[in-house]
């Protein structure tokens, strides 16, 4: 019975997904019919161009440049954010001092800092990575810090009653308690890091998807603009759906 319930649930989810995709395509087509070729290309034209563009040797170096920059930025965001967040979470005083600063920095439009980043890192990969990491590191740090602060003190008292060593307490109580919240932070950090890298590429780079996009805007190449947006949309949606699934799986028990 449980199996058939699960099967029904799965087919229901597939139906919902197909319906969502159909709605998006219909809305896209409708928008195309209203505004026309000047602003957007139709779903069919875009798909056709994407199939042609993606494997081409003109496009692939840009994709690779973006992925390299994004991968590096993500690594720095995640490692730096988690490390910073855990430190601030466990060291109460540092956390109290740093929290308002991080909050202010988080709400600041980071684009204002881009000239400074360019002065420090110069044009190229490192500036893009730095700008992407700047976007991602703060939310990851804030979520990680709050994960540590949110540990139920009763769980730590239970650890003492059960006479667990510090290592055992971290492994069996602290880690499972904080991981779900940290994963939520990683999910938020993922999209913001991607945003940072793309903005970085748009304003000061000769490579990458962001560069292609700004170039297409300058040339008013509507087909290229729509196709790039489509590819980015696909990438962001698929990865964020995967991260969201992991996130939900971890949170369902809490």
């Amino acid at each position: 019975m449980t199996q058939s319930t699960a099967a029904v649930g799965k087919s229901r989810r597939l139906q919902d997904f197909a319906l969502l995709v159909a709605c998006i395509l219909a809305a896209w087509q409708a928008l195309y019919m209203i505004v026309g070729d000047v602003a957007i290309t139709s779903p069919v034209t875009t798909l056709g161009y994407a199939i042609e563009l993606l494997p081409s040797s003109d496009f692939r170096p840009h994709l690779a440049a973006s992925l390299t920059a994004f991968g590096n930025a993500l690594l720095i965001s995640y490692a730096g954010g988690v490390l910073l967040g855990l430190t601030l979470g466990f060291h109460r005083f540092s956390g109290e001092v740093a929290e308002p600063m991080l909050g202010a920095l988080y709400s600041l439009p980071k684009i204002a800092l881009y000239p400074i980043i360019l002065q420090i890192f110069g044009l190229g990969l490192s500036a893009k990575v730095a700008f992407g990491a700047l976007h991602g590191v703060i939310p990851v740090a804030l979520f990680s810090m709050n994960a540590v602060r949110g540990i139920n003190p009763m769980h730590l008292r239970t650890a003492r009653v059960l006479r667990l060593s510090s290592i055992e307490t971290v492994r069996t109580i602290v880690a499972p308690a904080i991981i779900p919240e940290i994963v939520t932070g990683l999910r938020v950090g993922f999209s913001l890091t991607l945003l940072g890298v793309l903005i970085g590429e748009m304003f000061a780079s000769q490579h990458g998807m962001g560069f292609l996009l700004i170039n297409a805007i300058n040339l008013h190449d509507v087909k290229m603009i729509t196709t790039l947006i489509f590819v980015l949309f696909l990438f962001a949606t698929v990865t964020s759906a995967i991260l969201l699934a992991i996130d939900r799986r971890l949170h369902v028990r809490v």
Partner: peptide, 20 residues
Amino acid sequence: GAVPPGIGVVFQEDASFPWL
């Protein structure tokens, strides 16, 4: 300074581990 073996404690607040 430490809980000796042979003592068990139940607290007022829910101390069950939600991830297990």
